[in-house]
């Protein structure tokens, strides 16, 4: 079975187990082993754009070096990890950052040529497995489920560093859901910010950001939301309790819906770990017994 290096990151081992386990399991079903790095450390959770902040780049680069033992690709699930790892590598290997790079390599006491490509699991599904192929593996067709794919900021921007999808009109996750038989819902806030870490300092501001996104999703007629990031998930799901309007809209990790379509064990799907209980919706759509 094809092995690709896999980096779970902090939250996937704790609060977002459902994002992690579903991904490993579905990959297995689709013929790819997500092989976790032997050792790994925190990516930094947010990319530091301060120009002299070399220290913040050490951690992500160490992970990328570690990945070389397994493959030239490193798969992430969390949009934040994806953003940090990919940008660190991209920027460190710009010609103008030659001095920084040498200093970093001296510090890490190793040689690394920047060849580890950070990819998101969605990209693995699209490029390594193929959505057409995925279609044939579906056990439970998500027919009738209207899903709003919420990408957030960290996978899309800065587009010149990440080059993930059209930053104004991303479709990769929508295409995946279409392959699973679900109905992707268009809405204009796919890449708007959920408020991110501002939540910790000014919860009201972050909550308003998330509420705007939810309003747009509900207007578009979606049954549920799919996310790729634990912080987006929390802001959009859990913070519904603090919103001025009640949406009662279930929020999934995209891997949970993928798992559902591939008949992954309910224990792994872990549908209890949500603020808005998604089970009634799934039952109503006949996707869950």
């Amino acid at each position: 079975m094809k092995q690709i290096a896999y980096y779970p990151g902090c939250t996937l081992y704790t609060k977002s187990k459902n994002l992690d386990l579903c991904a490993r399991e579905t990959a297995q079903i689709l013929g790819v082993e997500l092989k976790e790095l032997e050792t790994w450390n925190c990516c930094g959770a947010i990319y530091s754009t301060v120009q002299d902040d070399l220290a913040n780049q050490v951690a992500p680069i160490r992970n990328l070096i570690e990945a070389q033992k397994i493959s030239n690709k490193l798969v992430t699930l969390c949009a934040a990890c994806y953003n940090v790892l990919k940008r660190s590598n991209h920027n460190l290997f710009l010609p103008e950052n030659d001095i920084y790079r040498r200093r970093m390599m001296n510090f890490l006491d190793t040689e690394y040529d920047g060849k580890t490509e950070t990819v998101h699991y969605l990209e693995v599904l699209k490029n390594d497995i193929g959505f057409e192929n995925l279609k044939t593996k579906v056990k439970t067709n998500l027919d009738g489920l209207k899903v709003a794919s919420y990408y957030g900021c960290l996978m899309l921007r800065p587009s010149d560093e990440l080059n993930f999808d059209d930053p104004d009109n991303p479709t990769m996750m929508d295409d995946m859901f279409a392959a699973l038989g679900a109905e992707p819902v268009e809405f204009p806030f796919k890449g708007e910010c959920c408020g991110g870490y501002v939540l910790v300092d000014k919860p009201d501001v972050a909550t308003r950001c998330s509420q705007t996104i939810l309003e747009s999703i509900v207007d578009a007629g979606a049954d549920c939301v799919a996310t790729t990031c634990p912080l987006c998930q929390y802001n959009i799901d859990n913070q519904q309790k603090l919103m001025s309007k009640q949406f009662n809209l279930p929020v999934f990790y995209f891997t949970q819906l993928l798992g559902l379509a591939l008949n992954v064990d309910q224990k792994i799907l872990n549908l209890d770990n949500h603020y808005i209980d998604p089970k009634p919706l799934l039952k109503q759509k006949g996707l869950l017994k």
Partner: peptide, 18 residues
């Protein structure tokens, strides 16, 4: 309560920035 609820990622990011 928030500390026990929210994802680690939020705190790491916030401490990085704040």
């Amino acid at each position: 309560q928030f500390i026990s609820d929210a994802p680690q990622q939020a705190f790491i990011a916030a401490f990085r920035k704040y």
